[in-house]
Design a protein around this nucleic acid. Structure first.
Length: 265
DNA sequence: CTCAGTGTTCAGTG
DNA sequence: TCACTGAACACTGA
């Protein structure tokens, strides 16, 4: 479930298992779609024997800083995640890459639907896609005044804009819907028509939702019960919020959007 | 059997 | 050229 909080969880998992350790072995699945711009065997050869200095994340992109380039860049797509287990245990189904450390731990990325990407770059923060990403709402959300200026020149529905990674890196479908619900803004409103007050509320909720989700390590069971998240897919028809308000479904920005007409104006 | 889906990219349009 | 939209991508589970 990889939006910013889930990817941050992955970064922390990588931090625990890889950082400060040496990669003694790399297994790379024969998948020319997920491995992008590098063959699986070249990827494995480049990483074997390297020491891991840090695990970084911007938006939904994650990369490991090694003691020398090139560095691996991972994107989970819709179905990617990490698994941690001991050396010798079987690889999980849909495994794409497994890093084994000198401590005997395995960090494995699985990717059932193959929309994830694994790349190798010399300078990840200064190369696409990371160099083209907008602000990461967890670390450097722009001041409200700046957001007001930016949104004023945008003509697309606010929901579509929230999904645009060059503006807010890391926001995905459920976060966009959650933030708009809590900010009481209808998803089809044009960004340029939002009042400064509404932009301020949007910014506040964007920060709050992401902060909370990261705080509970992206464990959905620990998300507050008042969040739209728990109710959006509850029933295909007749879904309601925790307060009994009707949830409507529509398509905006090419994605299914859940919203509450009684609350969002 | 059909289709939606927690994401990104790219061709096409205005 | 820019901003934006919608389809394509891959494939499982409902």
């Amino acid at each position: 479930m990889p939006e910013l909080p889930e990817v941050e969880r992955g970064r922390r998992q990588a931090e625990c298992t890889l950082v400060g350790r040496q990669i003694v072995r790399v297994a790379a699945a024969d998948d020319r779609i997920v491995f992008n711009g590098v063959t699986p065997r070249k990827f494995a050869a480049a990483l074997k024997g390297r020491n891991v200095v840090a695990a970084h994340r911007t938006g939904k992109q994650m990369w490991f800083e090694l003691d020398q380039p090139p560095h691996p860049l991972l994107h989970f797509g819709m179905t990617g995640r990490f698994h941690i287990y001991k050396d010798g245990d079987p690889h999980p189904r849909f495994w794409k890459v497994v890093f084994t450390t000198d401590a005997g731990d395995c960090l494995c990325m699985t990717n059932m639907r193959r929309l994830g990407r694994i790349r190798l770059q010399d300078d990840p923060p200064n190369e696409p896609p990371i160099s083209q990403l907008g602000a990461d709402p967890l670390n450097d959300l722009p001041p409200a005044s700046e957001l007001v200026t930016q949104l004023a020149r945008r003509r697309s529905p606010i929901k579509a804009l929230l999904l645009n990674q060059s503006l807010f890196a890391g926001v995905g479908n459920w976060i966009a819907d959650e933030v708009l619900y809590q900010a009481k803004i209808a998803p089809h409103r044009l960004a340029s028509n939002l009042s400064p007050c509404e932009v301020g509320m949007l910014r506040k909720k964007l920060s709050a939702v992401i902060r909370k989700a990261v705080e509970v390590d992206a464990d959905k069971h620990k998300f507050p019960r008042t969040w739209l998240f728990h109710h959006r897919w509850g029933k295909v028809r007749g879904a309601v919020t925790s307060r009994g308000e009707a949830i409507a479904h529509t398509t905006i920005g090419g994605r299914t959007t859940a919203w509450v007409p009684a609350v969002q104006k």
